[in-house]
Design a protein around this nucleic acid. Structure first.
Length: 951
RNA sequence: GCUGGGAUGGCGGAAUUGGUAUACGCGCUAGUCUUAGGAACUAGUGGGGCAACCCGUGGGAGUUCAAGUCUCCCUCCCAGCACCA
């Protein structure tokens, strides 16, 4: 008998596939096209990672299945080869990144081929190849021509170690994503791409694509639209205005100050007039120098400085209000300025308290309890809720029974002629006997609380005031309780920490938040202190007040424009030329004419960026000195290069026509292949690569060079493979697993099968080296069984059912990426085949067809050994026969009172009467049925019988 | 804090969407072949109990003939975002 020799057969079939161009996609074909895409790798020196294998094998299984189903599959591969590691290596060793890249891609290629991935190598691309980046540069020029690429002095995130400007997306927790150094702020002239112009479409069109929900949520979050009003605040005695963005124009009457971000342009314009010029300039400078880390290390403590000498005018009530500069307002969001409403915003409240700014209440809370939602017949009443403190951190509570609302603070009805404070003191004395008390505060607000008093059968609208009381001593008189109150409650002092666990009623929670936690009310409600808008609800007032002050309803986004310059070497040169002569005419930046593309990246001697952060190219006058395309005078090339995200923003388009030197891809081929049908990749690329490439694609669609408005129809994501202890795999921890060793020891098929079996595809799973053995054993058993002589007769009914069920299950599982259960089903099926004895050729044909996408080498070898016609990888996906899915006999569980007691064998089409009858006679069940009365019997055909027995 | 996703044997994980919980694999136990070994083979393997049986899907209530699955409350874990006005 032949031994299963994975090395021999894997080498044989890999050679065969290469020689026959087995996986080449056809640009012209009558077959249904199917474009499957994985994220092309950065060819790092570490080589292939088991994470790559998981993602790529998954789509390889899909690709192989789809080919077997007769589709024209495009499954390409290439290299995202620009980037920092190769450049840092060059810095250390002086070896050109090109050389390192070649070495690494060769290694990757060898590894990829060794695991039998069915890529179409004829379309291989490399972002660092001038024939490729020519078109990256071309796309940049189109962006420039449409005004979407512009140079601007921008405050950028600067990594002092890598000496490179970073996009917002590359800053993680205030640190450089790559090296972990705290990021600084720097002002620099940068090329920017106006992705914000596409924010709305990038947001809205997520509706039209089939992305894993997590990815959609993350992108929505990142784009971050927010609806609100833009409102102008005039500066008193000046024609200057400050535009603010607010989502709460309904609280405009409560705006008692304004805040500008330190970066706000107005600060510089008015600073000379200020009484405290030096203080303001000092604050602004300090804010700029602070790193993100320092800012968050300072906690949420807010700082700021008033601009003394100028005032703004609240456009709603014409009151003069102070203007502050404070870094809790962000320069890059909204208009960089806010109106501050301390009564109804947490941050403004904290700031106003610190700087003694008036707090003006303008929203009365409203709450309608569910039990009166549909009623209109309310009896008005005036109440108070009072929080009584003993000055030692304890709060007075009244413990009622659950029907009275459980644990509450003191409350009561305001009687004729009483102030809320008097009511509070009276109720305190009556219910608890305490008399030595003082009113600290009576809240301005009136809480409109609608509820149903079941004891009285009345729906009340309780206008509730809030009183804060301090008890000086426990001096007590006798309680004066009403008849119905006697013995119904207990007075208890509760520590402030414990209150939230006991007091849950809306009004009382509100009182606690207000007086003890000092939280402002930030919800909606009814307007007050707001002129003729009083009594209007928040939603209506938002529109009406915006109109009243001449504001505009707008949507703002968190998304910022994309900082596109890198002061580095190993990237695509930005194809722009600066001419000082033309600059005087307002057109200093000139695009390199398209017929001069690509602008080649020259070889340099020195890879280190300059101390001021300029690109190494800035040290090469022989390269950057050139002539102006507009006036032919002397001019200089841009020496910054593009970020790594450039080449990957459109690579899937190049695969359609990777050799074309006339256009970036032939429109006919683009039409044939795009959009990508299925794109699998990591979650870490959701807000970077995925969003950027959607942006570029939409732009290319707008200028008419691609036929669809979205690049990817479907996006899925694989879970990370963790180390055996559940921690992250990393080279530095030395807990990585090498695909090479696994291929050597167990074979590519075992590696592929194991990674598909390891766990649910979209979830992180720890690696388990022991489990690889399991799938290897499985393949050994397949191999061994295939050496047995074949049967002449078609096999037993039971096995046919299992086989056809397996066809159905594996097919469905592959499409829904439940690879783990697909493999499991293949194992179950093999178990059944081993038990069945001799197998018929047709059964092997089915089984190998199903196994082939997962373990293509073994399946191909056995297919050939068994003498089957044609290629297993082409058009041999088995079809299941619905008739064969239905077994003639089924096993039905018998339950007594919901507990499984026995199983019985029934004909699949057994009637209810037959089934129940059989069950009653079953020895296992009979014992439980005896001595009781059968109250009910439930029969679910093919599944279960349940007898309800009363005793 | 907000948003999204989770919690099932010793481990990775199944469960036809309300119908025999723990499929499949690992590990473990016993045995077989073997000088030996296991990446070999066979059988067993949720917990408790001598047994009949009982208990079991993070915790607590509920709906149902029947709940891992549905409803409500709670606890914990993971991921993303976070001074976003």
């Amino acid at each position: 008998m032949d031994q299963y020799d994975h090395k021999k057969i894997e080498k044989k079939w890999q050679k065969h596939w290469e020689e026959t161009n087995a996986f080449r996609a056809d640009d012209v074909s009558s077959k249904e096209k199917n474009y499957l895409l994985i994220e092309f790798p950065y060819p790092s020196g570490d080589g292939l990672h088991v994470g790559h294998v998981r993602s790529w094998t998954a789509l390889d299984v899909v690709a192989r299945k789809h080919r077997a189903e007769g589709k024209n599959v495009l499954y390409p591969i290439g290299w995202d080869a620009f980037g920092l590691p190769a450049e840092n290596f060059a810095l250390k060793t002086g070896i050109h990144p090109k050389i390192l890249t070649k070495k690494n891609t060769d290694n990757f290629k060898r590894q990829i081929k060794s695991i039998g991935l069915s890529f179409d190598w004829s379309r291989e691309i490399d972002t660092t190849d001038p024939a490729y980046y020519k078109w990256t540069q071309w796309i940049f020029l189109q962006l420039f021509k449409k005004g979407l690429a512009y140079k601007a002095k921008a405050v950028i995130n600067w990594c002092p170690k890598d000496k490179v400007g970073l996009a917002n997306e590359e800053v993680v927790d205030g640190e450089c994503e790559r090296c972990g150094t705290p990021v600084e702020k720097r002002e620099k002239e940068q090329w920017m791409l106006a992705i914000t112009k596409y924010a709305q479409r990038l947001y809205d069109d997520l509706e039209t694509v089939d992305y894993i929900e997590r990815a959609k949520v993350q992108q929505r979050n990142w784009i971050g639209p927010s609806e609100g009003a833009e409102i102008d605040f005039a500066i008193a005695g000046s024609d200057k205005k400050i535009k603010v963005f607010t989502t709460r124009p309904d609280t405009l009457f409560g705006a008692t100050y304004m805040v500008l971000a330190p970066e706000h342009a107005l600060v510089g314009k008015v600073v000379e007039k200020l009484e405290n010029k030096d203080e303001v300039l000092g604050y602004v400078a300090a804010a700029k120098n602070r790193t993100e880390i320092e800012r968050s290390a300072e906690g949420k403590e807010k700082t700021g400085v008033e601009l003394r000498g100028i005032k703004a005018i609240n456009p709603a009530n014409k009151e003069e209000i102070p203007i502050f500069v404070a870094d809790y307002v962000l320069g890059g969001y909204g208009t960089g300025a806010i109106m501050a409403v301390p009564a109804h915003d947490d941050r403004d409240f904290a700031f106003a308290q610190k700087y003694n700014i008036p707090i003006k209440h303008t929203i009365n809370p409203v709450y309608i309890r569910d039990d009166v939602a549909s009623r209109t017949d309310f009896t008005p009443k005036h109440k108070i809720v009072s929080v009584v403190e003993d000055g030692k951190g304890n709060i007075l509570t009244i413990q009622w029974g659950p029907e009275m609302g459980g644990t509450l603070f003191l409350g009561g009805t305001i009687e004729e002629g009483e102030t809320p404070g008097q009511t509070a003191l009276r109720e305190l004395a009556e219910e608890t006997g305490y008399t030595d008390a003082e009113i600290i505060e009576v809240g301005d607000e009136v809480f409109d609380y609608k509820y149903f008093a079941s004891s009285k059968g009345v729906a009340y609208q309780a206008f509730t005031k809030f009183v804060h009381v301090k008890l000086h001593s426990l001096t007590q008189q006798e309680q004066k309780l009403e008849q119905n109150e006697v013995g119904k409650f207990k007075v208890e002092w509760v520590s402030a920490q414990q209150v939230p666990t006991k007091v849950t009623e809306v009004l009382h929670v509100y009182a606690f938040n207000k007086f003890i936690l000092h939280k402002p009310y930030t919800g909606s409600g009814t307007l007050t202190n707001s002129g003729h808008f009083n009594e209007m609800n928040s939603e209506e007032a938002k529109q009406k007040i915006t109109e009243f002050v001449g504001g505009k309803w707008v949507t703002t986004f968190k998304l910022r424009d994309w900082v596109f310059s890198r002061q580095r070497y190993w990237g695509e040169p930005i194809p722009m030329i600066f001419c000082e002569v033309c600059d005087k005419k307002g057109a200093g930046w000139q695009p390199v004419p398209e017929n001069q593309l690509p602008v080649l990246l020259p070889d340099v001697e020195q890879y280190r960026p300059g101390e001021n952060g300029e690109s190494p190219l800035a040290g090469m006058p022989e390269w950057y000195n050139t002539t102006c395309p507009a006036c032919s005078g002397p001019a200089k090339r841009e020496t910054d290069v593009m970020p790594q995200w450039a080449g990957s923003s459109w690579y899937y388009l190049r695969y359609c026509d990777s050799q074309n030197d006339q256009v970036f891809a032939d429109p006919q081929k683009l039409k044939h292949w795009t959009p990508v049908d299925w794109y699998n990749g990591g979650m870490e690329h959701t807000t970077l690569h995925l969003l950027y490439s959607r942006f570029w694609h939409k732009f290319l669609f707008d200028i008419g060079v691609v036929p669809s408005s979205e690049p990817y129809k479907k996006r899925t994501s694989h879970g990370l493979i963790l180390a055996e202890d559940g921690s992250k795999m990393s080279k530095s921890k030395g807990n990585t697993v090498s695909p090479d060793e696994l291929v050597e020891a167990f074979g590519a098929d075992s590696l592929r099968l194991y990674e598909m079996f390891i766990g649910p595809f979209d979830q992180p799973t720890p690696w388990n080296s022991g489990s690889v053995v399991g799938v290897r054993r499985f393949l050994e058993r397949v191999w061994k069984l295939a050496q047995e002589p074949l049967a002449d007769e078609p096999a037993s009914e039971a096995l046919e059912v299992t086989l056809h069920h397996t066809i159905k299950k594996v097919g469905e599982d592959v499409e829904t990426m439940k690879f783990n259960t697909a493999v499991s089903q293949l194992m179950i099926c093999l178990n059944a085949m081993e038990k069945a004895g001799k197998l018929h050729a047709s059964q092997w044909k089915i089984y190998l067809g199903l196994l082939a996408p997962f373990a293509p080498h073994v399946a191909s070898e056995l297919w050939e050994k068994l003498g089957f016609e044609g290629s297993i990888s082409k058009e041999n996906w088995p079809q299941y026969d619905l008739a064969k899915l239905v077994a003639k006999h089924v096993l039905v569980a018998v339950q007594i009172n919901g507990k499984s007691r026995s199983t019985i064998q029934l004909a699949a089409d057994a009637s209810e009467a037959e089934a129940l009858d059989t069950a009653r006679k079953d020895s296992g069940a009979a014992k439980w049925l005896a001595g009781g009365r059968e109250a009910r019997a439930v029969y679910v055909p093919g599944k279960i019988i349940n007898f309800v027995i009363e005793r």
